[in-house]
Design a protein around this nucleic acid. Structure first.
Length: 949
DNA sequence: GTAGGGTTAG
């Protein structure tokens, strides 16, 4: 093929440079000779400037005998397209229009359509296409391609319809673009139709077509169909086929499959390309696959793909997701030409790893080095500010986005709103919300959940109603966030309303159903939670976790633990959230065996004992009575956060080690952790249970004055409990009457309990009437009040209180105790005969009681029987208390030397306390009892509570 | 002769 020389020595020299000084004209002979390469060679080199110059020469030279032909235009249009040089392309277009030398207008128009498409100007492409005198297949293909590259897949599909209507035959080149369009809009049915057409036209032997079909099915989430096509290529696969199928598996999260196919590819002898490594590196993004990452990295190096931008960026992302930011930074440092994606990958890596300060530093470095942050950089940074609650940094970023005109960007606006919501500033969130010119469903969802999370449920609901006013489409995300708002309102009827909407519109998926389970649970409607759960056809780990935590939150820990084997039956793997709810169920029940099993599972599966896992483990061990193991977990936790310190402090408190709790609290302060309300609550609780009155007062004081925290009602309750137990009843009463807020029922309850123990009738009377006035529907309160009267032998008053209670239809929770033996809980209520080994248990109990009377001088203290009965009957009642049955069973089933662990739902009575102390001495048996309030360690006749509980 | 397939940050 002859290439026309458009420039060269035979053309007159021209001064094209205007930079030279006018006074010093460079003589023609001084000018460097024009590049002797032909236009084609210049174009192949990609030198647009040079190509343009040489073409321009041909236009302006007066003595040129011929005008540039179609081919010259074509070459330079291709170059413009490749370099996305729109303005140069437009200049050529102008010349084409002016020039009368074009032979084949259809050919050149097709080229123009192509060029405009590639340069991102769909408008011009369409204009040229529409004005064409006639269309051939090349023109159609160019126009369809232009639509696809300009993210107008629907336009491409419309053109396809038009072609079909005109009965215009498609060729093999039409298919890839069309299939890409189907993939972009996830239009599987059109994709299948086009697949059928490709079969009919016999294009399935074309690798381009098949590879496009593989990609289409993968993007439409039908990976099996993609694999079927791939596997039928039998020897016709090229590197793109392999890349497509590996991408399909990687994107659908089937890592093992993706890696298996990659291995097969290597075995088949197909050399991977840079396109191969991007999805393969993605499969290594799981932190647990650190070893694999290094292996794949080695292959990248071996095959020399370590200079490719895509590969390098993917490596950065992979190491960041592997929690190996140092490695990521090393790769990043060595990237010669860092693009925005590289910078942003690093930035999001820091954020995802919780390294917010590093992210801030990196961001400022980015600006110093002249790298301009874009929307995505801002999104990462705003997420960091939101998650770390750094309002100041968030506002600075807001200012930056205003200055750089990015605040109107949808993505930036949404993230700004989220940041303000997370920093507790719904007012600023609202400001951004109203300023955003374009809102999408994420915007609305963010507003709703922002209000919900900040305890503005009504605002959340109003925003939800506004969606209907604005005629926005309601999507599943919105449903999810409005449901969470309902759970903050604890309003079951509202949840039912939304649930009804979900059912009517058919707008639900697994996520929504799981949310419903959780939200019904939060609203204390466990029946509905169960019903929704039962109706979920294919339950996943989240379904089970939602159900378990609903059970736990509603005091049904047993039912929660019953779900664990059902998860195993369904082959559902436990994740860390599931483990958290299992651990808290185990803690509730003192189910040490289950708890230990979970701890083992965590260690075996390489979970880090940190964060919520650590504090849940501390809770579980302390609630199961093993304080030592709580401390071991606490001590081994590397990054101790506030919750884990708080868990350990309340563990000490529960077990009566008040001083240890206070010491730990001080140690926490000295390590610069700022205690919150909950931390103060645990230390006050510890003081109260160990009679550390002065310490408790000091702590309460520092909470208000040093840390500027306003006490919650719970803190007041703790203080009253502490003063009352220590027999400072007058002071406790004064404290209640001078509180900054109206005392809640629990405060009077604590005071009344103290009055009972210390026999103060005057204050007790006041507390009792206040308690029943404030919380008249709680059967426990009536029981407490009647017990106070019973202790003073005021049997008429007892009868009156009990009949009021009966009249209200209130029933007291029966006392029960349980013990874990084997893999089972054995639950006893008083005088329970339902246990299969009831006879043995009662015989054993009689033996113990006799021994204690004989050797330990045990005398039943019938004053603890709060019924007006004969003395003999009272003794009989005491003897049948549930904890004694549980202890007897424990003694029957436990090897000598192993402590017996009992849990009781109410407080231990005084006589049982004595009974247990004596048992620990005369039967040489360590007994650990967890009652409703705290732990009692009985050993050698002494209880850890110092008879103070 | 023109037109076509597989990748990275959120």
């Amino acid at each position: 093929m002859a290439t026309l020389r458009l420039s060269g020595p035979h053309l007159p020299f021209r001064l094209t440079s205007t930079t030279s000084s006018k006074t010093h004209k460079i003589p023609p002979f001084m000018k460097p000779p024009i590049n002797p390469f032909s236009l084609k060679e210049i174009c192949q080199e990609g030198n647009l400037r040079e190509a343009f110059k040489s073409l321009a020469n041909t236009f302006t030279s007066q003595n040129l005998s011929h005008k540039p032909p179609d081919e010259a235009y074509s070459l330079i249009l291709d170059l413009c397209a490749a370099q996305k040089a729109l303005s140069q392309g437009q200049q050529i277009h102008a010349h084409v229009l002016k020039s009368n030398s074009v032979n084949d207008t259809v050919f050149l128009d097709t080229k123009l359509v192509f060029m405009y498409g590639k340069c991102g100007s769909l408008f011009h492409a369409e204009k040229v296409f529409d004005d064409m005198p006639e269309w051939n297949i090349f023109a159609w293909n160019a126009m369809i391609g232009a639509c696809v590259t300009n993210e107008e897949p629907l336009g491409a599909l419309e053109l396809y319809e038009e072609m079909r209507m005109l009965d215009f035959p498609l060729d093999a080149h039409t298919f890839p673009s069309l299939l890409k369009a189907c993939a972009a809009v996830k239009d599987l049915s059109s994709g299948c139709e086009i697949h059928g057409l490709a079969i009919k036209l016999g294009f399935l032997s074309n690798a381009f077509v098949v590879n496009s079909l593989v990609g289409m099915y993968a993007k439409c989430d039908d990976v099996p169909a993609a694999y079927r096509l791939f596997s039928r290529m039998s020897g016709k696969e090229d590197v793109v086929s392999w890349n497509s199928i590996i991408s399909a598996y990687a994107a659908s999260g089937r890592r093992t499959e993706a890696l298996r196919i990659f291995g097969e590819m290597l075995n088949t002898g197909v050399t991977p390309s840079t396109y191969t490594f991007v999805p393969v590196l993605q499969t290594c993004e799981e932190p647990a696959l650190g070893k694999l990452s290094s292996g794949v990295h080695a292959i990248v190096l071996k095959l020399g793909h370590h200079l490719d931008t895509y590969v390098l960026n993917s490596l950065v992302v992979m190491y960041a997701r592997n929690n190996r930011m140092d490695e990521a930074a090393r790769i990043f440092r060595d990237i010669k030409e860092k693009d925005n994606i590289a910078w942003n990958s690093m930035l999001s890596g820091y954020v995802q790893n919780g390294l917010y300060d590093e992210a801030l530093y990196f961001f400022s470095e980015m600006k110093t080095l002249g790298q301009k942050p874009d929307q995505i950089s801002l999104v990462s940074m705003l997420a960091a500010s939101g998650r770390s609650g750094n309002l100041l940094a968030g506002m600075q970023l807001h200012a930056f986005s205003l200055k750089n005109r990015m605040d109107c960007d949808l993505l930036v606006g949404n993230t700004l709103m989220d940041m303000y919501a997370k920093c507790g500033r719904t007012d600023y969130m609202q400001f951004v919300f109203y300023r955003m010119p374009y809102k999408d469903s994420v915007t609305w969802t963010t507003a709703i959940s922002g209000y919900a999370q900040n305890n503005f449920p009504t605002k959340a609901l109003n925003t939800f109603r506004e969606i209907f006013v604005e005629n926005m489409e309601v999507d599943l995300l919105m449903i999810g966030s409005i449901l969470l708002a309902c759970s903050d309102l604890k309003c079951s009827s509202l949840v039912k309303e939304i649930h009804g909407y979900v059912i009517r519109t058919g707008l639900h998926d697994l996520v929504t159903e799981n949310t419903l389970v959780k939200v019904y649970g939060d609203c204390r409607n466990i029946t509905y939670a169960c019903n929704v759960f039962k109706l979920i056809r294919v339950k996943n780990v989240v379904s089970f976790t939602s159900m378990m935590s609903s059970y736990v939150d509603n005091g049904l820990a047993n039912e929660a633990l019953d779900l664990v084997p059902r998860m195993q039956e369904n082959e559902i793997e436990l994740d860390f959230v599931a483990i958290l709810s299992i651990l808290s169920a185990a803690a509730d029940l003192s189910a040490l065996r289950k708890g230990k099993e979970m701890h083992g599972f965590l260690l075996r599966n390489g979970f880090l004992v940190e964060g919520p896992i650590a504090s849940c483990l501390v809770d579980m061990y302390s609630c199961s009575g093993i304080l030592d193991d709580s401390y071991k977990v606490f001590n081994c936790t590397l990054n101790k956060d506030l919750p884990v310190w708080t868990s350990m402090i309340s563990a000490y408190g529960m077990h009566g080690f008040g001083k240890a709790a206070v010491d730990l609290f001080r140690r926490m302060e000295s390590e610069n952790l700022i205690p919150d309300h909950v931390a103060f609550l645990s230390v006050l609780y510890a003081c109260s249970h160990s009679a550390l009155v002065e310490e408790g007062k000091r702590v309460f004081d520092s909470m208000q004055h040093e840390y500027k925290l306003d006490p919650w009602p719970e803190h007041y309750t703790c203080m009253v409990d502490m003063l009352g137990r220590a027999n400072y009843l007058e002071e406790a009463f004064r404290f209640v009457t001078t509180m900054k807020m109206e005392p809640i029922a629990a405060v009077w309850c604590a005071l009344l309990g103290a009055c009972r123990v210390h026999s103060n009738e005057k204050i007790g009377e006041i507390a009792a009437s206040k308690l029943l006035e404030l919380d008249p529907d709680n059967p426990g309160n009536y029981v407490l009040v009647s017990n106070v009267y019973a202790a003073r032998d005021r049997w008429e008053d007892v009868e009156e209180v009990r009949s009021t209670m009966k009249g209200k239809g209130l029933k007291k929770d029966p006392a029960c105790s349980w013990i874990e033996v084997g893999n089972k809980f054995h639950v006893f209520i008083a005088h329970d005969r339902s246990h299969p080994e009831s006879d043995e248990i009662n015989q054993k109990l009689d033996l113990i009681t006799e021994k204690l009377v004989r050797e330990g001088g045990y005398v039943p203290q019938t004053k603890y029987v709060l019924h007006d009965l004969e003395e003999k009957e009272k003794v009989k009642l005491l003897n049948g208390h549930s904890e004694r049955l549980a202890i007897s069973y424990g003694l029957l089933k436990t090897a000598y030397g192993t402590p017996i662990r009992i849990t009781k739902n109410l407080r231990v009575c005084g006589d049982c306390h004595t009974f247990t102390k004596l048992t620990s001495k005369y039967l040489e048996q360590e007994i650990i009892v967890r009652d409703a309030n705290r732990f009692h360690h009985f050993r050698d006749g002494i209880c850890s509570c110092g008879d103070f509980w």
